[in-house]
């Protein structure tokens, strides 16, 4: 039975590790400025935890086999209540490992969440509702118009859905769309909002995720670094349509972005 345990535990360990190393399923390609740092932290954690995982599982299997009860031929058990030196060694080692990892990662976290967006960032307001994302650009005046919960009408399309108050002068040039366009290599300043329940704005390729919470307007920033189409998913249970609360972000060149926004402005007139 000890041998069977050895075989199965080692097999499970090596099969899982094989898929982790060969990685047919892996983080999607990173296309934002912060992706590299996050991925690096991920891989560091991954290698360290992988080593601990393999060592712990293999010694568990090994001990199960090696110290099985072999009847009378076996050496007597080692009567011991423990070893304080060993306890201290592995307490300190794991302490250093875990706290060290934490400190490494916290720098990236600080850059992600503590620093405000640059002044040159493109402002985009993201609004989540059951079960769609709407994106708003402030237009040439750089100011978002007022929205009013009383005016919200999801059945009447984008502007009405987020309750844009068209009597506000700042709202005149606001562009509201269902697909997000972003210029490449320029920081985006997101304002995340939700009108009904909590949603979570998740762009796997950009290593971006933040809950959109009713009652709060949360600011986040991200810099896309590659032109392309990327999927947006909702990552917080928001009701029966959670699985289809899906959107697209199209990262384009600055010229294409300017052209696109000008066309939207023209449509509004």
């Amino acid at each position: 039975m000890g041998l069977a345990l050895l075989a199965v535990i080692w097999l499970i360990t090596f099969v899982s590790t094989y898929f982790f190393i060969w990685h047919p399923w892996w983080l999607p390609a990173g296309v934002s400025a912060s992706a590299a740092a996050i991925d690096h932290q991920f891989v560091t954690t991954y290698i360290l935890m992988g080593i601990v995982f393999v060592l712990a599982q293999c010694s568990l299997g090994l001990f199960a086999w090696q110290y099985r009860d072999r009847g009378s031929s076996a050496p007597p058990v080692d009567y011991s209540h423990g070893n304080t030196t060993m306890e201290i060694v592995w307490t300190v080692l794991t302490g250093v490992l875990f706290v060290g990892l934490n400190l490494m990662g916290s720098k990236i976290w600080a850059a992600e969440r503590f620093e405000p967006a640059q002044a040159s960032a493109v402002p985009v307001e993201v609004t989540g509702m059951q079960f769609a994302w709407y994106f708003r650009y402030p237009g040439p005046d750089g100011k978002f118009g007022i929205t009013n919960p009383k005016l919200m009408d999801p059945s009447a399309g984008s502007e009405a859905a987020i309750g844009l108050d068209t009597s506000d002068p700042a709202a005149k040039d606001d562009v509201v769309t269902g697909t997000m366009f972003l210029p490449v290599n320029r920081q985006v300043d997101f304002t995340l909002r939700a009108v009904d329940v909590i949603h979570s704005f998740f762009i796997p390729n950009m290593r971006f995720k933040q809950d959109a919470v009713p009652g709060l307007a949360i600011h986040m920033h991200v810099t896309p670094t590659q032109i392309g189409d990327y999927e947006i998913a909702c990552a917080e249970l928001c009701g029966l349509g959670h699985y289809k609360m899906h959107g697209m972000v199209k990262v384009v060149s600055q010229e294409d972005f300017d052209k696109w926004i000008a066309a939207r402005e023209a449509e509004k007139q």
Partner: peptide, 8 residues
């Protein structure tokens, strides 16, 4: 406290 600054 954050609601005071981030609140809609």
């Amino acid at each position: 406290d954050r609601i005071l600054t981030l609140g809609v």
